[in-house]
Design a protein around this nucleic acid. Structure first.
Lengths: 356, 356
DNA sequence: TTAGAAATTGCATTCGCAGTCACCTCCAAC
DNA sequence: GTTGGAGGTGACTGCGAATGCAATTTCTAA
């Protein structure tokens, strides 16, 4: 009754022993360990479950047998019966964004620290999302963190299946959802205020893609504050969060204003960097003497000497920690109501903008 | 006999109906679908297996029932019996490296295209590796791609368990292993040759961490070629592949040589970028007029106008594709012998070095 | 029309482990 | 010596799907 695979009934021997496939030694199971240790399979199982009631003698015998056989509990089988995979999915649109790798890194670290594994999904195209969700369902993940855009129908499918979902720097306007994000309205307003106070009057804005909630928010807060200060007709150029968008954005702004703006607010750092490079190398403008440029995020390169970007840094570490703990709370108790955790950015005063 | 969970024997009714947990509707199983469609569970299973023998009528009935119940096959249960998880692990030391996100992105894309999911493991510290491997074993992944260093004992444990392993830009010197990497010896030699030909005589090198095989290779090829050209006593400063290592490296080189070197070979782009910034902003040197700086990898920022780095770009896309296909070949046939696939870098002539 | 081949379908079993329940041992309290 | 726990342990069942095999249906060809 012990190892079924290793002790086939006599009449099945011939069929069993075929093709032993060199190197394909079947992995030891809890039955094998039980057999070797002369105990029951349940005992083996208990030995690997923290907090179970097992005598020291039993534990030692089992552990020794397990070690000798190179036994490792099968998380797949365990998941099947416990209905907990200890897996979460992280959905990220594109990793080339420079900001996301940091997020991903923090998220996996946080998950790992809690004994949770990460199933990574990246989106070649936004349209792939339904296909990705299909995979997510199949793997019965305990929860999902999404840094990608989801429609409200898609969000509804999470609810229907009872899979907790946390948005990272995204949310839905027409539906309450769990989200961790960085509210940069205040920061944006402060940056605008400082730029205005330093005498800038001709502004330009390079926005992020339309589906980026935080990007929209940054732009909205900026234009609003500018309007309050009496600065209107501020051109807003759409961008895609990448370097070229920053470069092209500045050229476009210059064209629209018939001269370079005095200050450019970019919806993220990478575009701000592109903008700085365009100002310096294409237009020959001194930064910040002739033009001030600010960004958002606080990614690594923004601190490089060539840029020393004035930016609003996101507390990625704390945000990631919050996202994972929020998610695991929902895994424990699926009935917790939707919650938004809002963080504030920190103004980093670089040298890419005159703020005084 | 159909849905066991949904049709409990009468005597168990009372116990079953407790705590329906609002929102925790149990996910439909193949039994449920079978019941609804009036067919057997096997039939349902076959309908979801591509290439199985199923009549059109049957398929339609089953699919309709599945749709109505929101059924999704349970990959966990499937893995248990097929002994294939369709999961691979990707082990990466740190994602903050700027080069790795690109690699990770390509690897997941390639895996996704083959219907394989990625379990991501990052290493907070090198010492965590054993702990990570423990997790890898538990999840019965079909294979592993490691961009992190592994000892030969660790590699041996892969063999013992029959889990295919592919190294990415790493390998073991004392043991044949599967590896995909970019041989940059030739490229390094060419870069050195060109730098020498352009008149540079005082060289400095900023190396990568000791455990980076490609880093060591880049340095070794460079120093060897320099020696052949009669340039000896080239100082080699150890670095950690990060921006600060580039900055400090140049300062250290300057100290050692009692003046800035004429040309600096950095073991990766990020250090080369740090080096350029240090040259310009700390030492006030014109690049490439007064100092030439070259790097390796061809990461995104190396192309930014502020740097326009002369570098040796790795064909990451092709390498990732190769790694995944090589891995899946081993999953199919575990007995394939170890293989190394070597790619060559492409010289990108930027403006950070005088090469003529 | 019918034997025989081919295509479908269902039954029963299996994957590896966790949890339930019954049972057993040992010891303190009475 | 009996009783009542508490702490351990093992037999057994089932998580959800895949699959070999046998039973059945459908199709093909004579």
């Amino acid at each position: 009754m012990a190892s079924r695979r290793n002790q086939p009934p006599p009449d099945a021997l011939s069929a069993q022993d075929s093709t032993p496939l060199p190197g394909a030694a079947p992995r030891a199971t809890s039955y094998d360990v039980a057999l070797k240790a002369g105990v029951s399979q349940s005992a083996v199982s208990r030995c690997f479950k923290p907090g179970a009631s097992v005598s020291t003698r039993m534990r030692e015998r089992v552990m020794r047998a397990a070690r000798e056989l190179g036994y490792t509990p099968n998380a797949i089988a365990r998941s099947l019966i416990t209905r907990r995979s200890n897996l979460i999915a992280i959905i990220i649109s594109n990793l080339t964004n420079l900001y996301y790798p940091e997020v991903l890194s923090e998220l996996t670290a946080q998950a790992g620290a809690r004994g949770i594994r990460v199933l990574l999904f990246t989106l070649p195209t936004e349209s792939e999302i339904d296909h990705v969700l299909e995979q997510v369902w199949q793997y019965r993940v305990d929860g999902v963190v999404s840094a990608a855009r989801l429609s409200s129908e898609q969000v509804a499918s999470f609810e229907k299946r009872g899979v907790p979902l946390i948005f990272y720097n995204r949310y839905l306007k027409d539906k309450p959802v769990n989200a961790v994000f960085c509210d940069q309205s205040d920061g944006a307003r402060i940056m605008v205020q400082r730029l205005y106070g330093a005498g800038h009057r001709k502004f330009g804005i390079i926005a992020g893609p339309r589906d980026s909630v935080v990007g929209q928010e940054r732009v909205k807060a900026s234009t609003e504050r500018l309007a309050e200060l009496g600065v209107t007709d501020v051109p807003v150029i759409p961008g895609a969060y990448d370097y070229d968008s920053g470069v092209n954005g500045l050229h476009e702004l210059t064209r629209r204003l018939h001269r370079p703006p005095q200050a450019v607010i970019c919806a993220n750092d990478v575009m701000a960097i592109g903008c700085m490079d365009a100002a310096r190398y294409d237009l020959g403008l001194l930064v910040p003497k002739r033009i001030s440029i600010v960004g958002f995020d606080g990614v690594g390169p923004s601190a490089w000497s060539s840029y020393r970007l004035t930016t609003l840094r996101q507390p990625v570490h704390r945000m990631a920690e919050s996202a994972i703990s929020m998610l695991m709370d929902r895994v424990q108790n699926p009935n917790l109501s939707p919650e938004r955790r809002v963080f504030s950015g920190a103004l980093i005063e670089g040298t890419s903008a005159r703020l005084r």
